[in-house]
Computed example of a mutant assay.
Amino acid sequence: MTAGEGKLIGDETAGKPFSAPCAIFIPPDAVHGFQFARGSEGIVATVLADRLALPRASDRAFSEYFTKSRIVPMEGETAGEAAHLQRLFPQLLEEHGNAAVLGRDWLLDMHVTEILVRLARVGVRTSTPEPQGSSSSDSRRLLALETLIAAHFREHRPVAFYAEKIGVSVAQLNRIARREAGASVSRLLARRLIDAARRDLVFTPTPVQAIAYSLGFQDPAYFNRFFRRQTGTTPGVYRETQRRRLAS
């Protein structure tokens, strides 16, 4: 936010006040609203939840930071990061408008990741203690798992494939995933597939059948059932609902 002030409305009925210069982070699925004073200005960037995977996997403190709505002041001790963010947001908008330029999606991912990391740096203290039972080796294994999932999720590999690559048993890998990420390996794989499907459904004109094949599903009908089981709705209904929401 570059000018003005307002309140972030969420679980607290009174709302949390904010004023420029600041940045506001809203996590996926958070119920929220805003009350802006007249004359307020700023940039709004909406990204799909899978963009959080890499920064969240890289550091447990970052992972915790991204679970809650945050109001990040951009002045005083945070002025250095603010200068970087003031440069990154315009670059993100400019690159987003270059639809036909080679490498556009890669650069968008890089800009989004850097913005998220710099926002988290402001609020995360390096001395934040790790949760009981966690270890640096398990954190590294989770990061390795996230990296492998990003590379192979379209291949529908069994959990044993990831366990072998990381050098642990299937049971141990599932214990690490549940402790470090709050979900089993199978659940993390399903989330990655659903995140990719959601992105393609909302932001591309690709037919649902083609999206199913691109995500490694041999049977589009099974993809429909998988998507509905994970989200509670069909791919077609999800696409229509989300596009109507974005248009409004």
Rank of each mutant, 00 (worst) to 15 (best):
N174M: 00
V112Q: 02
V159D: 09
L102P: 04
L8E: 02
F153P: 06
V72C: 00
R51T: 11
I166T: 10
T13S: 15
V237M: 12
T231G: 04
V47L: 14
P205Q: 08
Q172A: 15
R198H: 06
C22M: 13
G4E: 01
A210Y: 03
F36E: 12
S69P: 12
R229Q: 14
G182E: 02
A183Q: 14
V159Y: 01
V117E: 13
P158T: 11
R104L: 02
Y213C: 06
G6I: 05
D105M: 03
T13N: 13
P205T: 05
L8R: 06
F217V: 01
R118Y: 01
S136C: 05
H96T: 10
E75A: 14
E155C: 12
F161E: 00
N174I: 04
W106Y: 09
F36C: 12
R179D: 04
I211P: 00
R104H: 04
T234S: 15
L215P: 08
V72E: 07
N174V: 01
H156W: 14
I211Q: 06
A79I: 15
A210K: 10
E164L: 04
E12A: 07
W106P: 00
A160G: 06
T147S: 14
P220W: 02
S135M: 03
S58L: 11
L215G: 12
Y213M: 13
A163F: 01
L188D: 00
G133F: 09
L48E: 13
Q91M: 15
A183R: 14
G33I: 03
P17M: 06
A20R: 05
S58V: 02
E146Y: 06
F18K: 05
L193N: 09
D105T: 10
K7E: 12
I9E: 05
A221L: 13
L48S: 06
L107D: 03
A45M: 12
A171E: 15
R187L: 05
R118A: 07
E94I: 01
A183M: 11
D109W: 06
Q218F: 11
L107C: 01
L108A: 02
Q172L: 10
Y238Q: 03
E155R: 13
R229Y: 07
L92T: 11
D138N: 11
D11W: 08
G10T: 01
W106Q: 12
P235M: 00
G80V: 11
V124N: 04
S139F: 05
S63C: 07
L107Y: 12
E180T: 05
G15R: 03
S139H: 12
G76Y: 02
Y213N: 08
L107M: 09
A247F: 08
D195Y: 13
L215Y: 05
S186N: 15
S139G: 13
R229N: 15
A183F: 09
L193R: 12
A83D: 11
L108E: 01
Q218I: 10
T13H: 13
R239N: 04
P73M: 08
A83T: 09
E5P: 01
P158H: 07
P55I: 03
D200K: 08
D219K: 07
Y65I: 04
G15D: 03
R229A: 15
E240K: 08
T128A: 07
A49L: 09
A49V: 10
V202W: 00
E95I: 14
D11N: 11
I194W: 06
V122C: 15
Y65G: 00
E180W: 00
E64L: 09
A61P: 07
G6T: 08
K165I: 03
F36D: 07
A247W: 02
